[in-house]
């Protein structure tokens, strides 16, 4: 390797700090240090996700059933399309970033400004999309029951195989439940939000409708969820303990709870990276406008934030594969 082939006069002190043995400036090297360590952090997260997934390989939720929304298309089953769009947006903002870097090499202030602006807009759209994705995931779609062991029971129509929501299953009854208020007790603890239906309402509604059956989270040999027979389902529903609507860090209507935990953690950590990238890009954008780099004589700062921005894109490529495709 042509590591120390320095041809300058001070080549006697290659590692003395005087010159650049890797032909990269201090700032760029430090950015690479950060990126390599951050890449290892993300690998750790994704491998931990892989660990949990392989450990629960026969109960892992099917991504195509979880992420099915597309803006303005209500009730249309559109798996993958929205994340594909998000991926294109992020790759495109990566391209405008690299164009900004290229314009910086030519000392073209107007072009750098323009491309930085496009990059910021792309990043903002991506963060917004991720927020929307989270909202759908947290809100849930059909709802489910949860057994004592944390297993998810979902309802399907036995004839068509289509999912059935809790609202269609439930047999709502008059609530005689009285909420304890702070003013009529010495000891008072606030209660969290309750699900729309109680377990017994779902159970009685299920018993009344003969065309319904239950789908467990276990996968069959060909990768589909196991659908129980009506008799098995009637027995299984007695084991239900909770009604689950949507997903959070403790309950998850889509299946294995760990899926939701890793989804929140990894896409959240990535989204935080995108968010900080947008903030840093805005700072650099204003620096470009006021002419800081014009006076400095080079646009290397744009190149450095560009490295970070491409890295965020790079991570998304992997998150996309492991959460949505595989």
């Amino acid at each position: 390797m042509e590591v120390t082939a320095a041809n300058s006069a001070d080549s006697t002190s290659v590692w003395g700090g005087g010159n650049q043995p890797l032909n990269a400036s201090y700032g760029k090297l430090m950015m690479w240090f950060f990126i390599v360590s951050d890449a290892l952090t993300f690998s750790g997260f994704l491998v931990a996700y892989g660990f949990s997934r392989f450990k629960n390989i026969n109960t892992w939720p099917i991504a195509d059933e979880v992420f099915t929304h597309f803006p303005f298309l209500h009730g249309v089953d559109a798996p993958m399309y929205y994340v594909a769009l998000m991926t294109f947006i992020l790759i495109f903002s990566s391209v405008t970033m690299v164009l900004a870097v290229d314009a910086g090499h030519h000392m073209n202030k107007a072009k750098v400004t323009f491309y930085m602006l496009l990059t910021i807009i792309g990043g903002a759209i991506f963060v917004g999309s991720q927020a929307w994705e989270w909202k759908n995931f947290i809100k849930g779609e059909y709802g489910a029951l949860e057994t004592r062991g944390g297993q998810i029971l979902q309802f399907v129509n036995a004839d068509t195989g289509k999912r059935v929501s809790l609202a269609e299953v439930a047999n709502p009854q008059q609530q005689i439940r009285e909420t304890h208020q702070a003013y009529n007790g010495i000891w008072y603890q606030q209660e969290g939000t309750l699900p729309t239906y109680t377990v017994s309402e779902i159970q009685s509604g299920f018993a009344a409708q003969n065309n319904l059956t239950i789908r467990t989270q276990e996968l069959t040999a060909d990768g589909q969820k196991t659908v129980l027979s009506r008799t098995d389902a009637l027995e299984k529903i007695q084991a239900a303990q909770n009604v689950v609507e949507g997903a959070n860090l403790i309950h998850n209507e889509y299946g294995n709870r760990l899926f939701a935990d890793f989804f929140f953690f990894i896409t959240g950590f990535h989204g935080f990276h995108v968010f900080s990238g947008v903030v840093i890009n805005i700072i650099i954008f204003f620096n470009v406008i006021v002419g800081t780099y014009e006076r400095r004589g080079h646009y290397e700062m744009v190149e450095k934030v560009g490295l970070y921005w491409h890295f965020v894109d790079l991570v998304w490529v992997f998150v996309f594969t492991f959460f949505y495709l595989v």
Binding site: M1, E2, V3, L22, N23, A24, W32, G306, L314
Partner: peptide, 12 residues
Amino acid sequence: DFMHIRDEKSSL
């Protein structure tokens, strides 16, 4: 290509 590793020294 986007992070310009292609243009860096092979040591880097």
